[in-house]
Amino acid sequence: MNVNWFKYSSPQTFFPLAGALAPWFLSAALLLGAVGLYLGFFVAPTDAQQGEAYRIIFIHVPAAWMSMFLYVVMAFWAGVGLVLNTRLSGMMASAVAPTGALFSFIALWTGSLRGKPTWGTWWVWDARLTSELILLFLYFGFMALQAAIDDPRRADKAGAVLALVGVINVPIIYFSVQWWNTLHQGASVSLKSAPTMAATMFAGMIVMALGFWMYSIAAALLRVRCIILERERHADWVAQYVRTLK
């Protein structure tokens, strides 16, 4: 049974597929989220030093993972779009970017809220938080560039070059910020996750991360459908699709 994957590479055939898959991923996200929250709140013990405040890590750490993972996914689709010159890959890259930016912002928000009870300040120049902030700027740069270019094809290609240059720089930024943090502050102030990682805590985070992943796929599929409709509005299959809805 050789499924011709390229059948789905054209926006027209991918559109219904995305529509069918999105609800499944959304429900998977809800399910995993519920399990994760249960693990996080009702199974994981209270942390010795940070009391209950540490429970924020159940969304802070997965959100940080997702923001970096989605940037790599975005760069992957951008690279595929640049090499294979397929329109759909470019659309997928622009579909993933806003969700990645959202998770990056969530990671920053929860990170600062977690820093307040433990270190008394809303913003801690911790290595991971700082590189998360720069990652958010990279996302904004990508989205601003795509918004500034009218011609969708050029927007995809230009965004692709920026995403590829960005993805090469993310590790460099991460390590230079890491080095910068140790130089100026020493390793005392850092949002390491709770030192004694009880098994249930770790399980809670993994499940929440999977839930976030399902959510990101669902959001990307929903957004790519909108992008396909916007870009293919002149195509006759779109007119036909609109007619069937009426």
Partner: peptide, 18 residues
């Protein structure tokens, strides 16, 4: 939430809301 209600529920509410 052990006195940290504002922080924990603050972050969960914003995340879910967004």
């Amino acid at each position: 939430m052990g006195g940290y209600a504002l922080y924990v529920w603050g972050s969960y509410a914003v995340t879910l809301g967004l």
